[in-house]
């Protein structure tokens, strides 16, 4: 099969996946679970097929690689289709785990660990906290029923179309591409040391800037979250001394 045929196959598979997610998306009533599963399975199979055969003359990934790939894609699909935010968050943990596994297999151990620590350890915890903060309390009877914006999607068809076109275009790009063969990266002292040297040698200033960015964000988050009440509920400013008419009613600029 030539690349063009593979590409058309991939388009079909992407369409199947998009359909599957379309059926799986929450939209008020019952979900057509069967259709979702069917199309999802077709898409998963197709992904495997493309991965092993469609990407030109590259190395064939291992079974473990394939499993983690499917796990990542499937969990991501669940994140965007699950009705309950908490479950979405948990599925996202799975995505992160799978991704870091893939990274390990690609030789990026340090990045994989950082990914695990930062995402699973920090970011996801924040998400869960926020989800808990942002749900009605347990005494509230309504909290048991689904809120409207979780139960209903917004224009699922258009969104899926956009996602499909994007995925299809990118896949087509990958499939038709002539992949170059390159030498493996030399890492005499191991991946961590190599990445560290790379960061501090080539990216020293961006690293510093990233530190600054983190600090700014921290302060920003504090400043935003500290504000308890909207402005109009704050006590009024004390009245000012009477002044001349010029510049009397001044508005901030």
């Amino acid at each position: 099969m030539n690349a063009v045929a593979w590409a058309y196959l991939a388009y079909g598979l992407m369409a199947a996946g998009a359909l599957g997610i379309y059926f799986a998306l929450p939209r008020g009533g019952r979900i057509n679970r069967a259709a979702a599963l069917l199309f999802g399975a077709i898409a998963a199979g197709g992904i495997l097929l493309v991965m092993y055969q469609g990407l030109g003359d590259t190395a064939r990934p291992s079974v473990v690689f394939a499993v983690f790939s499917l796990l990542a894609v499937g969990s991501a699909a669940r994140v965007i289709t699950h009705r309950k935010p908490v479950y979405s968050a948990l599925y996202f943990v799975v995505v992160v785990l799978a991704t870091s596994a893939l990274a390990v297999m690609a030789g990026a151990e340090f990045l994989a660990m950082a990914l695990l620590i930062v995402y699973a350890g920090a970011i996801l915890v924040t998400y869960v906290f926020v989800i808990m903060l942002a749900q009605q309390s347990a005494d509230d009877p309504e909290s048991l029923s689904m809120v409207d914006y979780d139960a209903n999607s917004r224009e699922p068809a258009t969104a899926m179309l956009a996602g499909f076109v994007l995925a299809a275009t990118l896949s087509g790009l990958f499939i038709q591409r002539k992949w170059p063969s390159v030498a493996a990266i030399e890492e005499p002292a191991g991946n961590t040391v190599a990445v560290g040297q790379e960061l501090l040698a080539r990216y020293a200033i961006p690293v510093e800037l990233a530190g600054v960015l983190l600090m700014v964000a921290m302060i920003g988050a504090l400043a935003i979250a500290r504000r308890h009440l909207p402005n109009d509920m704050l006590p009024a400013r004390p009245p000012e001394l009477p002044v001349g008419e010029i510049g009397k009613t001044v508005e901030p600029f």
Partner: peptide, 23 residues
Amino acid sequence: TTAPQLMFIGAILFALGVAGFLT
């Protein structure tokens, strides 16, 4: 290497994220 496969999976994840964000 498995670079093409990684990028393929990455592209699919990205597209899924976009679709989810939109909907």
